[in-house]
Design a protein around this nucleic acid. Sequence first.
DNA 1: ATTCTTACA
DNA 2: TGTAAGCA
Length: 118
Amino acid sequence: MAEKELRRNLAVLPIGTIRELTDLTDRQIRYYEEQHLIMPQRTASNRRMFSLNDVDRLLEIKDYLDAGDSIADIQAIYSKKAAKQREPDLSAHEMRQALASEFINLAGFSVNKKRKGY
DNA sequence: ATTCTTACA
DNA sequence: TGTAAGCA
């Protein structure tokens, strides 16, 4: 199911298609990119190329805007979302550490934490 | 024909 | 945000 995500992130749509798919003007689309709400890829000739996920994100942005959120609000929303996606790695590691020490305690073992190899 | 950047009666 | 100008 990772292959599907790959295709969803393939940037193959020119701005003209995005304009029709989202009912946004190219002016707005370029402005949102300037505000880092989206970061479409560029072709060798400097043309913006969007993915299906970009389309979803633009529709989402449009909803937030209609809901009264400001550009800054949306930037904050995506910033925190990006931060929480990089965090699970740490808690997974901490989880292993916690389980390991608890298991050691339950087993009645005593471990010298300063010893090499651990 | 399309898209890009820059600028503003 | 819209729109015009001059490029690519």
